[in-house]
Write a protein that binds this DNA or RNA. Structure first.
Length: 658
DNA sequence: TTTAGGG
DNA sequence: CCCTAAA
């Protein structure tokens, strides 16, 4: 499975606040297929959790990813050498960090490269800082930090420097950290093997520093995040993630930065030390006495955990489910490791970690829209998941597209099983109680949606619906229309009154090739009927299934004809597309049919099979008539003479339906 | 909001 | 099925 890696960072959970954040990541090069690397697009939540990216997010960065891919330099694809890290500045002025993913050493190389890069930034910042101080506008914290960290590594980033480094650079770093060698998936430790590569990276790092300020040298090989001020942490954060943060929580910042540096998603919030180009977790609470873990945890251990986490992410993400369950599972993992390693030292952070991200409404709607359009209810999720995995594993170059279409399809919906009514907490666009106002726009793109195809769809839908029992969508029935607005000017005039037009249309244009499975529940089966006023009114058509009819008869027998609302509530609770009015209408039709049938049942039955619709069994019609007579609903014109014939067989049937 | 009835 | 009046 190869996908894209990136880190999308979000403090406040909003996507809109940062176009920068959305761009992310590098793409594994096709040339490296022999040694594939698993990239996963994830979003780093404000509390540090990694949330599987939605396909929308993937798609939004898709262009960039492809662009990135095209520009990606494959330094070495031998898969064995580790001498391939390069930080280069492209013509556009972007810093780019690249390295080959050939071997395990390459992992360390990446880390080293990143550290070097950070050091470079640090140098710049330091210089600027000094200048600024000399100019009489000193920032006290920086001054302090300078003195404080003179012995250690102080990372001070300046916004100016940061501004020079476009966001694209950040994903490179991020992606260089978030990776897993799929060919070595069995082994946990891929991120940094301390034994190898350290020397080399150290040398290079020192080389970098030799030209620069002495107080920033990495001679002791340590970057102590603890000693950085919040401001410096902010700067480092900016360098690391490519954006600013307003978080004042030092622990949080450290944790985030360390996470980025170590490619770990469960970095303890205590102390981080980058030593000899290894990120080392250091626990300051040693003295507290309740620490049962080693005061120093080597990066090996960390990467191990981290890799586990990433495996989880990947596995979970294979289904592309943005499911709270999944998210919480991941979070649980993180928390477990966190708590296992670390004391709860920072309440705010812990709270943040505990907070469960819920998809925004817009997000839900996007998902649901796709879901309703593409989801075949009968398809088990497991199958889809496998399908997705398959697709992803076979297509390297266009993961965004694949994930986009497939990811959506799978997941987010756990349909009822075995016909039992299961209210699913997932969104669904099954919305039918009232006609959409934007149907006309939809029809514009489905001019071929004739009644024939609609009927065919209906049959299939009914089939699946019956097999499923009910389609549990009533929960989401009153949902608001989608928030996307298609600026299309081609909307029919009539639709102007409705501001929600074009909500589905964009999707269709985006995915025109995706054949609509006949398993749709709602939005097709619509026939436009010209009205006298010249307008077009949409007409939903959903053939009544035998099951529904039986339920209706049952309901009438229980509640009595006329109490449609109650029947709807009792027997059609999960048939959101059947309103009480529908029940009433259908009952009326049944009534008519039942009394029309009786005189010549056989003949009528044959003649009524016009559209391939199975005729309503005589038993049911008889039952209908019985109920009608009980309720004095017998049509006046037919009542007298037919009753006798019907009454005879009614008793027989009664057992069946009463 | 539900029901009944016309189209 | 949709629409609407009436309750």
């Amino acid at each position: 499975m190869e996908t894209v890696v990136g880190i999308e960072d979000n403090d406040d959970g909003k996507f809109e606040d940062s176009g920068l954040d959305r761009s992310s990541s590098a793409l594994s090069s096709p040339k490296q297929i022999s040694n594939p690397i698993v990239y996963k697009l994830v979003r780093v939540e404000g509390d540090g959790r990694l949330v599987p990216a939605t396909d929308d997010e993937v798609m939004e960065v898709g262009d960039f990813l492809e662009y990135e891919n095209s520009e990606m330099h494959v330094v070495a694809d031998t898969g064995q050498s580790l001498e391939c890290i390069s930080i280069e500045r492209s013509s556009s002025g972007k810093l780019r960090l690249e390295c080959s993913e050939g071997s395990t050493e390459a992992d360390l190389g990446k880390l080293n490269a990143k550290l070097q890069y950070i050091e470079q930034i640090l140098q710049k910042v330091k210089e600027e800082e000094k200048q600024r101080i000399s100019c009489g506008s000193p920032v006290h914290s920086h001054v302090n930090v300078d003195s404080q960290c003179s012995a250690d590594k102080c990372l001070v980033m300046d916004g100016k420097v940061q501004s020079e480094t476009p966001y694209q650079e950040i994903p490179s770093i991020a992606s260089s950290l978030n990776y897993t060698h799929s060919n070595q998936s069995g082994s946990m430790d891929q991120c940094s093997r301390p034994s190898e590569g350290v020397i080399e990276s150290g040398s290079s790092a020192s080389a970098v520093h030799s030209n620069l300020k002495p107080d920033l040298s990495m001679s002791d090989g340590e970057i102590c995040l603890d000693k950085l001020s919040i401001r410096e942490l902010h700067e480092l954060f900016k360098v690391t993630f490519g954006r600013e943060t307003t978080v004042k929580d030092k622990q949080w910042l450290k944790r985030r930065i360390a996470m980025s540096l170590t490619n770990s998603c469960d970095v303890s919030a205590t102390t981080f030390v980058i030593k000899d180009n290894k990120i080392v977790k250091k626990f300051v609470e040693e003295s507290s006495g309740n620490m049962n873990v080693a005061s120093l945890i080597s990066s090996e251990n960390m990467t191990e955990e981290e890799d586990i986490n990433f495996k989880d992410l990947s596995a979970v993400n294979a289904c592309g489910i943005d499911d709270n369950q999944v998210v919480s599972e991941i979070r649980l993992r993180n928390q477990n490791t966190e708590y296992g390693l670390d004391d709860v030292t920072n309440q705010t952070e812990q709270r943040a970690a505990k907070r469960i991200r819920r998809p925004t409404k817009r997000y839900i709607e996007e998902l649901s829209e796709n879901e309703s359009r593409e989801h075949n209810p009968r398809l088990p999720i497991s199958y889809k998941t496998m399908e997705l995995g398959h697709v992803s594993s076979t297509s390297h170059v266009r993961p965004a597209r694949n994930t986009f279409s497939e990811v959506r399809t799978c997941g987010t919906r756990f349909d009822s099983l075995g016909g039992s009514d299961v209210e699913i907490p997932c969104v669904s666009w099954i919305r039918r109680s009232r006609p959409r106002k934007d149907m006309a726009s939809l029809m514009k793109f489905h001019p071929a949606a004739t009644s024939e195809t609609a009927k065919l769809s209906n049959k299939l839908i009914e089939h699946s619906s019956d097999a499923l029992g009910e389609i549990p969508d009533k929960v989401f029935k009153p949902r608001m229309p989608a928030k996307f607005h298609q600026p299309s000017s081609s909307e029919p005039e009539k639709e102007k009154q409705s501001p929600v037009i074009g909500t589905i249309e964009p999707r269709q244009e985006l995915r025109p090739k995706r054949a609509d499975p006949p398993g749709h529940t709602s939005d097709d089966n619509i026939v436009t009927v010209p009205t006298a006023k010249g307008g077009m009114r949409r007409k939903h058509h959903r053939a009544w299934t035998l099951v529904e009819v039986i339920k209706l008869v049952e309901g009438v027998s229980r509640c009595g004809a006329g109490r449609w609302s109650e029947i709807k509530r009792l027997s059609f609770a999960s048939y959101s597309y059947r309103t009480s009015v529908d029940l009433k209408d259908k009952w009326r039709n049944l009534l008519k049919a039942s009394f029309a049938m009786t005189p010549a049942p056989a003949d009528e039955g044959i003649n009524s099979r016009k559209h391939g619709t199975a005729p309503i069994p005589e038993k049911i019609l008889l039952r209908v008539r019985e109920l009608a007579e009980m309720n004095s609903q017998v049509p006046p014109n037919i009542s007298s003479n037919k009753v006798a014939a019907g009454a005879g067989s009614v008793h027989e049937d009664r057992s069946g339906y009463l």
